[in-house]
Write a protein that binds this DNA or RNA. Structure first.
Length: 637
RNA sequence: GCCAGUGUGGCUCAACGGUAGAGCAACUGAUUUGUAAUCUGUGGGUUGCGGGUUCGAUUCCUGUCACUGGCUCCA
């Protein structure tokens, strides 16, 4: 029979061989490295006899999912240690995550990081024993007995299908309701570390009890753990909140309120540059820019449905339109989105099929009263600016419009060197619109992705209540993914606001409506860019492109003159005229990630040249002024 | 909103029951500097805010606000 090796090749082995035999037959090295086997996608132990005709994958430490298996096994070790140290603990779930694992516990008093050393020591003890993870199939009754003191496990047991095979996993005295896969024995865990504690709702449901979640990570080799920890430090250095302060991009003032960033001059420059850059592209692509109010009478939000659905997440206020003696209050709401404004603009005129598609865009600043626990620097703020657009079109035009948006997304994201992937979210349970509309719209989104050559995952039932959507996730320089662009079909607003157009046959038809954003939130996108580039924004976007560094006071005039020349070419230039040694000026400019530093001293002034230093490549030697002027002019929008 | 942790000068941190300290930054003065941080001096904090325990609180307790990490949420 055949087995599949990690490299994808096929190998024949004898009937009746166990997984361990199979591993051994591949060669001593691999056999030693084998950490588990997969039979028809169900994982089994090394002593499991491979059934006739089955395809077996021997997973080695180098296999892509090997570390996940290791991490999940380490979660068992964690639970085992906690159970020993805290008798009576209720254990929840303990899966592997992208970069480690966690295990949820219900304890009389929560754990803290101070408890980690003791738990880690106990885990190390368990790992040192190198006991096997033993898989057992038990009856439902046996399982109920085994977990008699584990109410969370019993709850899980009751939720399994009645005909499901009940698989438990023993390790030492620890037993878990879990079908794996696991490593053969705990000794393979070469290095692990508990990372943090957090609260987590049982089964992810905010209405249920909150458990203590312990996060950790594990590796086959100590070296890999060290590297992982080092990478975490590097990621921390890129944190946009830290760089945002160091680079003078934005600040938060507690007096202003939570989640309301204030942009410093450099931050404002970047945001305006991003906007201008996108604006030009959008004009070229047939979008028309509009401007709509920041507040609307509450009637608008009642019509749109936001008043009911999102009332607590919006900023509403009353204003006295009468006087002190005869007060007459009107209610207004600050916009959490720009759609109603664009819809009202559409309604400003009667529309013919000849007008369509109509593409309105706006850099619309919106305010959402996000829950206090979710605000996070620029990445999740309560006030932010969407690069928002709405497309009104016919049913037939829809697919080409989506395709055009995907093309735009591709252009924008590839400019920043982002790889990206797509997810299509389909009809949720609570939703409006007919089956036909949902089917057509969802197919249009799929079709557009296919035509664009964009692979997509399906998020079943994850669409908005008013229509399906495509979400674009970008991958940054250190491999993290961020959701940015979105394309959404909206069945709700055209209906609620009664939008129509005249067809060729002079009948009245409802237009189809698309929402789309490329950056999503411009400020959030800026935060992502800061982390992506570790603060070193590309030349065209850098708030300061050139730092002119006069060597001594007597060179300051020449420095100002050079700065003026560069500014005339569209450059953003700072002169470092303070009385400081060159190495200090260089250090300061460098820590500001300024793309070009120009040293100006007697030598340069005499020769009519400049000495240029690049932030990444260092000293570039002597340049004619024109060379830098040209580079700066090229980078101007 | 929930769970846990943390709040000390603009920033990064120390002191942890006995009158709050350093570095960076700021300001003085010196230095006029050649590719990642020169020397000198000065000023700056009712230790987030309120209450309690104590002879005495930055330190212990409590409430509150904010921040951090998660969870839930993200139209």
């Amino acid at each position: 029979m055949n087995i599949t090796l990690p490299d994808g090749s096929i190998k024949q082995v004898e009937q009746g061989a166990t997984i361990a035999d199979v591993a051994a037959s591949i060669g001593a090295g691999l056999a030693k490295a084998a950490i588990g086997g997969k039979i028809n996608c169900a994982y089994a132990d090394l002593d499991t006899v491979v059934p006739e005709g089955a395809t077996v994958e021997i997973i080695t430490q180098k296999s892509p999912d090997a570390r996940q298996i290791l991490c999940h096994s380490c979660a068992h070790v964690l639970a085992e240690a906690v159970q020993i140290l805290y008798p009576g603990v209720q254990i929840g779930y303990g899966p592997a995550t992208e970069d480690g694992f966690y295990y949820d516990f219900a304890l009389p008093s929560p754990l803290s990081t101070e408890d980690f050393p003791a738990i880690e020591a106990k885990m190390a003890e368990i790992i040192a024993k190198d006991e096997p993870f033993v898989r057992e199939v038990v009856s439902r009754e046996e399982a109920a007995g085994l977990f008699i003191n584990q109410r969370l496990k019993v709850e899980h047991l009751h939720e399994l299908d009645s005909d499901a095979e009940i698989i438990v996993r023993r390790h030492g005295d620890f037993i878990d309701l879990c079908n794996g896969p696991h490593i053969p024995s705990a000794g393979l865990i070469g290095a692990f570390k508990l990372m943090k504690v957090a609260g987590a709702y049982w089964k992810g449901d905010a209405s249920r009890e909150q458990l203590t979640r312990v996060y950790g990570t594990a590796f086959f080799k100590k070296k890999d753990l060290d590297e992982y920890l080092h990478n975490l430090e590097e990621a921390e250095k890129r944190d946009h909140r830290k760089l945002g302060r160091e680079l003078g991009i934005y600040t938060m003032d507690p007096m202003a309120g939570v989640g309301l960033p204030l942009y410093l001059p450099k931050g404002a420059r970047i945001i305006r540059t991003l906007q201008e850059w996108l604006r030009r592209d959008l004009y070229a692509r047939g979008y028309e820019e509009v401007i709509t109010p920041h507040i609307y009478n509450a009637e608008v939000w009642k019509t749109s449905g936001h008043y009911g659905y999102y009332h607590d997440n919006m900023y509403f206020f009353n204003i006295n339109e009468g006087d002190a003696d005869n007060p007459r209050y009107s209610e207004y709401g600050v916009k959490p989105m720009n759609c109603p404004g664009h819809v009202m603009l559409y309604k400003n005129d009667l529309h013919s099929y000849r007008d369509l598609p109509l593409r309105y865009f706006e850099f619309g600043t919106v305010y959402r009263h996000e829950m206090s626990g979710v605000v996070h620097g620029l990445l999740r703020a309560r006030g932010f600016t969407q690069d928002d657009a709405h497309v009104f079109c016919t049913r037939e035009q829809l697919v080409d419009e989506v395709l055009a948006i995907l093309d735009l997304v591709d252009h924008i994201m590839s400019t920043f060197g982002f790889e990206y992937s797509a997810e299509i979210s389909t009809r949720p349970e609570k939703s409006i619109g007919t089956d036909d509309m949902w089917e057509h719209a969802t197919n249009v989104l799929k079709d557009a992705c296919a035509r664009h050559g964009l692979a997509y995952d399906i998020n079943e039932g994850d669409g908005a209540f008013y229509g399906p959507k495509i979400d674009i996730k970008v991958k940054d320089a250190i491999g993290r993914t961020w959701q940015c662009s979105t394309v959404q079909v909206d069945f709700n607003l055209p209906e609620r606001f009664g939008l129509t157009y005249r067809t060729e046959d002079n009948t009245e038809e409802r237009p189809w409506m698309l929402h789309r954003a490329i950056f999503g939130s411009i400020e959030r996108f800026l935060g992502i860019l800061i982390e992506h580039y570790a603060g070193a924004l590309p030349l065209w976007l850098a708030p300061v492109q050139v730092a002119v560094l006069p060597l001594a006071d007597r060179h300051n005039d020449a420095a100002e003159e050079l700065a003026a020349t560069l500014r005339a070419a569209g450059g953003r230039v700072d002169v470092y005229a303070q009385n400081e040694p060159m190495r200090v000026k260089i250090a300061k400019a460098q820590s500001q990630r300024i793309p070009y530093m120009v040293v100006l001293g007697d030598k340069e002034i005499e020769n009519g040249t400049i000495s240029v230093r690049s932030r990444h490549e260092g000293d570039q030697g002597s340049w004619p002024v024109e060379k830098l002027v040209e580079i700066i002019a090229d980078a101007a929008l």
